[in-house]
Each structure stands twice: as C-alpha cells, then as structure tokens.
Design a protein around this nucleic acid. Structure first.
Lengths: 247, 247
DNA sequence: CGGAAGATTGACGGCCTTCAAGATTAGTGG
DNA sequence: CCACTAATCTTGAAGGCCGTCAATCTTCCG
C-alpha cells in the first residue's frame, strides 16, 4: 500500500529531490500532501480564471495546460503541465485566480490546500525551500517562453518550445533525444506560441522539410537533434537538475 | 537607529504584510535579512546570466531590470524591478543564473544569501509562505507580460504595460492615476515589449495623439485613465492587495 | 453514414522590422 | 561660453513575416 503510494508520488518527490536531498521524514510529510485523489476528463477546467477559493493540485498522470483568456476572445496558453507539476498553485496564494487550468487528456491529480502546505512548511522548513525552488523553476520556464515569443521567429520558437518539452519529459522518463509522445493539437500549439494555427502548420512543414523535426500522429520525432539545438539556440541551463543543491 | 532601518525596509515588509499579517518576531527576522547594504551604479550588472554562486538582493531604492540575452544579440527584458522587489532570487535557487539584472538608475540594495533565507524559514514558517506568495506574484506579472507579447498588438501592449507599472508603483507610493516618474528609454521599452525602438516611438505618438497617454521627459501621464484601461483591457486582479489573506 | 475536429494549402493584406537620415538633448572639454 | 560627441528621439520608405479569409481533405466517432 505504502509502496503503491510511493510509486504514484514519484514525479514530485523526484523533482524536489533534485534540489533538496529529502530525509525520510520529509518524504513522509510530502506523502501526506497526496491524500485526496481525484480525476478530471479532458476539457473540464479544474481551475477557473477570476474565481476565488480555488484548490491547488499535483498532477499525477496526463497533460494539462494553464491559460488566460482575453476579452477579445484570444487565448494565451502559459505553459503545459506534465506529471509531477503543480496545478493552480498561484491561484491559492493570490486572492483571485489569474488563470485557468484545463486537462488536455484525462488526468489524475491529488488535491492540496494551503493549510496543509503551511503545516508541512512548519514541520520541515527544507520542504519550503524545495517548493520555492519548484516554483522558481516554473517561473524560469515561463521566462524562457517569454523570450520565445518576444525575440524568436515562428520557426525558432516552435523548435525551442518542442525541445524544452522534450527535455522536461526526459526528466520524468517520458521522452528521449529521439522524441516523445505529444497529445497537443496545432490549435493548442498556436495558442501557446502566440501564432495562428495556420502558421503553426506552415512552420511544422518547414521544419519537416529541412529534416530537423517531424510532428505527426501525436509523436514528436527529432530527426536531427544537434542541428535543431543549434537552430533554436536551445540551452537547458534553466532545467538543469544534476544533483541536489542543498545537502 | 532601529527606526531608520524600519523605514528603509518598508517596501518589502509592506509587500509581504499584504499577504501575511506579520508579527513582531517576523518583522525582526525580516529585518535581519537586511544586513549587508550595497549600492550599484546604473548599467553595472549585479547578476550575470550563466554564472553560478550569485547572490540575491532586495531593492531598496531605484529601478532595475532583469533580462536574457540571445546568441544572435537580441535581448528580452523580462521585467522591471522597483523598490521592495527581489533581484536575482531565481539565480540563487537554480544552479546557474538563467538571467541578468541591470540597474537602470543608481540603486541601493541589501544582499541576501540562501542560508540566511533558510534560517528565516525555519524560525518563522509563515515567512516562507509570504516569500512564496511574493514569488508567485512576480510570476503572475511575468505571465501577464507573456499575454502582452503573445496576444496584444503593439499599442495595446504598450498601454497595458505602462498601466501595470503605474499600478505597481502606486502600491509603494510612487505613482497615481495621474501618472508617474519613469526613467525608461524607448530602447528599454522596446526590449521589454518585444518591439523595435522605432515602432515604440510610433506607438507612443499614436497613444499621445489619441489623447490617452503622454510619455515625455521621464514622466508617464495618463491623459484619459478610463479610456486607457478599456483600450488595454487592463484588469489588475493579479496585483490585488486588499488586506492579508492569512491572519 | 453523417458530422465534428483537426490538418493542409493558397491568396491577400496589414503590422511591424530594417535601413537610412535628421533632430533634439545632455554631457564634456577647450 | 561654445564647439563637439554621444545618446536618445523622430520620421520616412521598402519589405518580410505572419494573420485572416476561404476551401479542401483526412480522421475519428457516434
């Protein structure tokens, strides 16, 4: 039973363990955060922009995306979340949620509320540092995403984004330098990259024709990883996880 | 002496106090983080992209900006920092700094290192929650910035960005609905908004001619605040600070 | 089998960039 | 006090990237 729990909670513990070497006690406290397990179907938002009293979640399996809607109807996807990531953590800390979260596939999550989190911090302050690190890492990805949209053209942007996704998935064992399974539609990619879906299609064709990358039937294949990295100027320092920083 | 310190540290304590009602002890611990005071001149970077062992700082007076440089020479400014903001907090938590920080004017800061911060967390866990909130608030601003660049045209983007800066400055007593002193050049605005400085100039002219906003001689004047807010679809939920969330 | 969602391609146009050249301001040294 | 330089601001013209509109095709699922 405890073992099953351990396995299911791996992604988060593994992520945090990369920053802080977690003790037995800290592992136990972390496990205590995984009490209420829930599932959501694809498309049913679990965090709602502009509402208060939202819960936060830890994603156990499946993909989700966080996004903001503008009044003119446009949408900007802020980031995609994969197993081990927090969902809507900002929405419990800020008074009103500034964004929504939508499952892309059917997902499994565990619910976390603020008081549990604060108790956990009081018991093991190092966990507070670890969570702060995780939030900082999320912010670093948003920042890189900002650079994508602000200073890269559509092709570089697409290449960089798919490389980052690949690197993140590799860290939790869901991808490699060959490629990865990717449930994203061209519409979702468009909303994430600040492009039209038509242009996303054109860019993917171009990347395929130049032999660097193929995205077909739910699979991203890196046809020429080295060339792609150079083309996109991909530098994964901000994802670096080679050993805990705090002993 | 203690009083002088209190006044100088106001911006951060004020910011955190908006989330967590801070006790005397927590105020004291917070003050303990403001030991090493330093000054930097405009243009001398105090955090360096790609380097390790960086320190973090709390900005006491002046303006700074955090940015990333691409290999092709382009630069993207992630955000501007004003008094009370952290500088380079991510760079101490991640192994290598993913960004640089440059003072825009001469600035006054206090240095903070990780171990001090962790000690503070251990002493007063609520402070950990408060810092986590502050980091989340920073992330919310970056996210809104992402929406700016991804889904707004140049004029809306400029209007939204200058409105946000005004709202942030008002929270620390440096601005109002009339306007605020703003030391940013058109080049800096261009790098922040993902535009060319030429286009920044054109957009500012258009906003001036339509009677919504005038930016001249280091001062942003809101000529028609209501119209501007509607034009930019500005909704400051993510900056909301009306009373502490945690008692 | 019909309908919806996604993928694909072409034509046209607009926003914004790049290149180029002045104008204005501020700081510096003679 | 004035010439000189550098930085910033300003404006014009040409062109490219990417958005919009429109149509066709494929796939999937009830």
């Amino acid at each position: 039973m405890g073992i099953v729990h351990n396995i299911k909670n791996m992604p988060l513990a593994r992520k945090l363990g990369a920053f802080v070497a977690l003790s037995e006690i800290e592992h136990t406290v972390l496990e205590g955060l995984h009490k209420r397990r829930r599932t959501f179907c694809a498309g049913r938002d679990l965090v709602h922009q502009g509402q208060s009293g939202q819960a936060a979640y830890i994603l156990v399996s499946g993909w989700a995306c966080s996004y903001k809607i503008l009044m003119n109807g446009h949408r900007q996807i802020v980031d995609f979340q994969i197993p081990g990531d927090f969902l809507g953590l900002r929405s419990v800390l800020l008074k009103l949620s500034d964004h929504s979260v939508e499952p892309i596939s059917d997902i499994e999550v565990t619910e976390v509320n603020v008081s549990d989190l604060l108790e956990a911090f009081a018991e093991t302050p190092r966990l507070a540092a670890a969570v702060l690190w995780a939030v900082s890492r999320d912010e670093a990805m948003v920042v890189e995403h900002l650079v994508d949209i602000g200073r890269r053209n559509a092709a570089e942007r697409m290449a960089h984004f798919l490389l980052e996704l690949g690197a993140r998935l590799s860290l939790v064992g869901l991808g490699s330098k060959a490629g990865y399974a990717c449930p994203l539609s061209q519409y979702l990619l468009a909303d994430a990259l600040g492009l039209s879906s038509i242009h996303v299609n054109r860019v993917l064709r171009k990347l395929r024709e130049t032999g660097m990358l193929t995205f077909r039937e739910g699979y991203v294949a890196f046809d020429n990883y080295e060339q792609l990295i150079e083309f996109a100027e991909f530098d994964p320092v901000y994802l670096d996880q080679a050993g805990p920083l705090l002993p």
